[in-house]
Design a binder for these strands. Sequence first.
DNA 1: CTGAAAGCGCTTACAG
DNA 2: CTGAAAGCGCTTACAG
Lengths: 341, 341
Amino acid sequence: MPTLEDVSKRAGVSTATASKVLSNTPYFTDETRQKVMQAVKELGYIPNLAARALSTGKTHIIAVVFPYVYEAIFTDPNVMHILAGIETECTSRGYNILLSTPNLSANEVDHHYLQLIQSGYLDGILAIDAYPEASALEPAQAKGIPSVAIGYGTTDHYVRHNDRAGGRAIGEHLLALGHTQIGIIDVPEVMNYGVQERLIGLRTACVEANIDFEALPIRHGDWSTASGAKCAAELLTTHPDLTALLCMNDRMAMGAIQQTREMGRDIPGDLSITGYDDIPTAAFLVPPLTTVSQRAPEQGQVAARMLFDILDGGKPDPVELPPQLMVRQSSGPATWPLNTM
Amino acid sequence: MPTLEDVSKRAGVSTATASKVLSNTPYFTDETRQKVMQAVKELGYIPNLAARALSTGKTHIIAVVFPYVYEAIFTDPNVMHILAGIETECTSRGYNILLSTPNLSANEVDHHYLQLIQSGYLDGILAIDAYPEASALEPAQAKGIPSVAIGYGTTDHYVRHNDRAGGRAIGEHLLALGHTQIGIIDVPEVMNYGVQERLIGLRTACVEANIDFEALPIRHGDWSTASGAKCAAELLTTHPDLTALLCMNDRMAMGAIQQTREMGRDIPGDLSITGYDDIPTAAFLVPPLTTVSQRAPEQGQVAARMLFDILDGGKPDPVELPPQLMVRQSSGPATWPLNTM
DNA sequence: CTGAAAGCGCTTACAG
DNA sequence: CTGAAAGCGCTTACAG
């Protein structure tokens, strides 16, 4: 591999000159400029990034951190869409993405991760922080590496979906359709901060509609389709008067839809079902699912932009992306239990 | 940040000694070993990877390359599962993953990508090569960087799903159920090499069952759910005697299922529908989809292992993973058209 | 406008 | 068993 020295020799200049020409420093004769470029081309010279990194302290690598706090991250469409958004932005800026999936369980620290953070390899970090208690960014902050959190972290810089507004929006949607007997399928509190927020938003919607939120029946799933089906079965059995099922993610909603049909009830004729996330398949379920989009690609893109802003010396404000209600055919006007009997 | 020199000073040894102790070189007094380790701990020393990379030529970074040859890669469950498999293997080996998504369109070269490849930053490369004509690994091979292809590349080292066996398996399944009037939904030839192979396998199955493969009606979609619905509508309209629809991916199968139901036909009572890929939702469609698993996570894991084998000086043989037929409820015994009239 | 030289932080023959 | 010293390939004050 040709080095800068090879280039400078061939061009008949010093390595300092060659280096500066390559980094577009002004004040150079067109002639020397030409000579250097010529040599670069003839030799097929490509700068050695490790050397450059050592000397400048900049690697042009930013880490994208997906903590293993919950099951299969690579299967989560939201996570993947966030990654896609990040990728778009980083590529256009000439930055490379290093993927890191540390194990953030409380008892043991992920040594590999800590080493990476402190290795000097990273110009910046983008991390998904599902909840503050398990922030992937703490070590990064301690080391002073520019970082922005996606979700509910503890950093100054973050971008997140406005879950509270999302919970409220989906609640208002159902309420506006006349539903008052709404069953809720969520997950245990500990698993997700955003879900808490959505419930608060939902409560607000209920209060405003004079519905007793606390009285609504609720079951805890684990995000999986199977758990959605199970929760739906329980809810519909114990509360036959329910006219709607509000699920905290689309996969549980899928399970609920399947279960409901197996129990012989029509959707949305007899029962409305809503999801959350707007995964790609949501629009193609039978019936197409009413849900809330978290605008994941935008989250990723905005986060990346914030990071570059920090890298440029800026102090970007946090961003909360408003939810996007996707009304489709799985929700419809409430039908009184009497009608269906 | 403390450097090796800080450590050596504190320990009262040379940097050479400190370095060697840290890399577990034998022949050192327990005492010096202790002193060094002690200093490391006290200082919180973490080696600078850029410096190490410059001096050893090894970065412990391997690039995972997903060419932008077709639409949204980050949305493709197969691709994501491959990534998950790679991640598992790399993490356990202490390697970091650099994500690269070069634009491999024929007319223009992706400069960023070429620079990255030749930058000395990468110890190895894992690339998805959908078809030989747009191999992401050519530049890597030219530079002599260890690399393995996932799919249909041109490298010595590759791992792929045995598409031919997969096409044959799904064909034999349908044939065994008594289907002879099978409509095919695939994609234009140019888009995917694997699909060609599946069709060859399917033909083999037909030949063995004395079915005229060439006579089977076929429509070209574009992988999307919508295109699947469209193709299904065309096929069922022009060929009302079809008893089965064989789709080249699950998403098109989803569209086909939806369309078929809208046309008032029962699945699998009136019509069997099969997919390919076994995406996570396949099992939860209504009805659950019969399909073929490409075993994507294994592909990723095997590819990573092969790469590490090469890095260790080995010459691993290519691997072809056999398909895994997932029989579910969207396929059933063929019913003669007369029955449904 | 251009160059000599030091330095980034590590590793590795080579000596002893 | 341990160390002095060169070298990896770049960039950057500092001079001129």
